[in-house]
Design a protein around this nucleic acid. Structure first.
Ligand SMILES: [Mn+2]
Ligand SMILES: [Mn+2]
Ligand SMILES: [Zn+2]
Ligand SMILES: [Zn+2]
Lengths: 129, 129
DNA sequence: GTTTAAATAATAATCATTATAAATTAGTTA
DNA sequence: TAACTAATTTATAATGATTATTATTTAAAC
């Protein structure tokens, strides 16, 4: 995908892709940096930021921020709900055909073309409730 | 509401409430500061932040962040969709009984109690599309 | 193997937010 | 009404996250 769009395939980018595109944890930049440093100790934080923005721009990743403003990265780019525990902060995805139906219904009603979404539900998770 | 909860009613807090609780524009901290400075030129940025957090804590205001991380304040605390224009950044609310139905259906299915939500739909607005 | 534009690393700069501490004040009480 | 006091505000410093800068390195093309 990188090569297709004219970007170089570097070991740093591969390492970041390998971790972040398979993560289901909605990691922060710090988490990603820590993880990548273990397999690639000389990587720079600037490279992490640049690569995450690049992956977002080419549509492989979704960037979002929690209510407090902290940036997170989501490898699930399809429409889904992010269930966020108010207590422990854990985020899990919820996918359902209902969501697609709801969104397309809304889009039709508004006569607007939907180009993206980010849906956060705040809950107490099974461990915390 | 402030007095009920044991907080003092100061002119600074009143000025902030008057603006932000009636605004439908989802203003940023900077926008709020600029606006309040016109009626209250000596106000400190720290007071703005403190007051916004206080109003959020007592449930008069909802704090959220756009995908890029910029903080916004929403005086509409009921469940609704925020329609965000990808081009000009304008945010408008969309309220509908469908949203409440959708959310309660999901909550029942998940057997989780929903304690809040923040729903962003990215679109191109009528002026921009 | 050379070449070159793109990418990386290290670091400085910037911006947003929070912490600190002295001065002021809202609300209570005499 | 005046005095009191804890809460609030202000001004400013500190912090933390992100971006900019620039010299060095490297992926990909030839
Ligand atoms: Mn997700
Ligand atoms: Mn809104
Ligand atoms: Zn939890
Ligand atoms: Zn627009």
């Amino acid at each position: 995908m990188l090569r297709e769009k004219g970007f170089k395939v570097t070991p740093q980018r591969l390492a970041i892709c390998r971790f972040v595109l398979s993560s289901k944890e909605h990691p922060s930049v710090e988490k990603i940096y820590d993880k990548i440093q273990k397999v690639y100790p000389t990587i720079s934080l600037a490279t992490i930021y640049q690569t995450l923005h690049l992956l977002t721009k080419i549509g492989l990743l979704q960037e979002f921020a929690l209510c407090n403003g902290s940036l997170r990265y989501d490898s699930n780019i399809s429409p889904h709900l992010n269930l966020i525990c108010k207590n422990c902060g854990k985020i899990i995805d919820y996918e359902s055909e209902k969501i697609n139906m709801f969104l397309s219904e809304i889009a039709k009603e508004l006569e607007l073309s939907l180009v993206g979404q980010h849906l956060e539900l705040y809950v107490y998770c099974n461990q915390c409730k």
